[in-house]
């Protein structure tokens, strides 16, 4: 559990990060909180010669809350939990962040690292898909935006180029009807299944619904059909069961030590039912 030797860089300008990435290509990686990357290095599953620490880059920090919410990539999960404006504007973030690991991990682990990592076990990617977030990426050729729903290609494969930095995450201020429901084996474990749900209502009926699932495929699963199944309903059993059925058709879990596929599907259905019920109660 000892990583191989590497050079450590700690630039204070974004341009310097990009220059280092361009210079060293895939022998270099940025490190944010290090709580996904460093374990991989210790297991020698990630080998790299240059580690570029992002913590001194001021542009990657900060939370702005307006009609659009903008969160700097280097914002820690702990900051998501404690930011008062965010708690009011998008409480689902804190509800999800609280279910990530433990305080020690959350003090260091960042939102940017969590979404850039590409591990299907991470909670924030699914949540960001649920919120229809956009990821701002800066590279040698400038800045572009990619929708969270288009970002994930396969486990650890994303639309981000190797020499691009995730700068910020933005999403429209969500409505009140939210829930993040996660089942895990213990503190510090990734999800057996998790569901992110945002609902909006008009005339006591669902007017808009967004549903995303975590750790049930090699990428987060935003299930458009599951959301659509709820629209126009009052979240009664037939609509919820239709949403669950639609979600089950979109996920593709694999067996691991959390359990067999059938179990994961069962849990996925259960957490989704619970999340919908809670989100609906908060609309």
């Amino acid at each position: 559990m000892i990583p191989a030797a590497f050079e450590y860089h700690r630039p204070s300008e974004l341009s310097a990060v990009i220059a280092l990435l361009s210079e060293h290509g895939d022998e270099a990686r940025v490190v944010a909180g290090g709580h996904s990357l460093i374990p991989m290095m210790k297991l020698r599953m990630a080998a790299l010669d240059h580690l570029i620490d992002l913590r001194d880059i001021a542009e990657l920090r900060g939370i702005e809350v307006g009609a659009t919410i903008r969160i700097g990539a280097m914002t820690t999960q702990h900051e998501l939990l404690t930011h008062a404006g965010l708690a009011e504007a998008a409480p689902i973030l804190a509800e999800a962040a609280r279910q990530i690991a433990d305080p020690q991990v959350r003090y260091l682990g960042t939102l940017g690292g969590n979404v850039a990592n590409g591990d299907p076990g991470n909670d924030m990617p699914g949540l960001m898909q649920c919120l229809d977030a956009r990821f701002t990426l800066t590279g040698p050729d400038g800045t572009r935006e990619v929708a969270a729903r288009d970002f994930y290609e396969a486990a650890y494969m994303t639309a981000r180029e190797d020499d691009e930095i995730l700068v910020a995450i933005t999403f429209p201020r969500p409505g009140a009807g939210h829930a993040y429901e996660k089942q895990k084996r213990k503190i510090g474990d990734y999800a057996t299944a998790a569901a992110a749900v945002q609902l909006e209502a008009a005339d006591s009926k669902v007017s808009a619904a967004s549903i995303a699932m975590t750790n049930l495929s090699d990428v987060p699963v935003w299930s458009a059909a599951a959301g659509a199944a709820l629209v126009g309903s009052a979240c009664g059993t037939p609509a919820v069961e239709a949403a669950v059925a639609a979600m089950l058709a979109d996920i593709d879990p694999v067996e691991d030590s959390r359990g067999p596929v059938e179990f994961k599907k069962h849990v996925a259905a259960t957490v989704l039912r619970r999340a919908i019920a809670r989100a609906w109660s908060r609309v």
Binding site: D102, R185, K186, I187, G188, D189, Y190, S257
Partner: peptide, 27 residues
């Protein structure tokens, strides 16, 4: 929850504390 599990190839499936259950104060 705690176990040392092997697959049929003789691989240990629970070789880290992610899969080997040690309760925290929470559990």
């Amino acid at each position: 929850g705690q176990e040392i599990a092997y697959d049929e190839m003789g691989n240990v499936k629970t070789g880290t504390l992610m899969d080997f259950f040690l309760p925290t104060s929470w559990e």
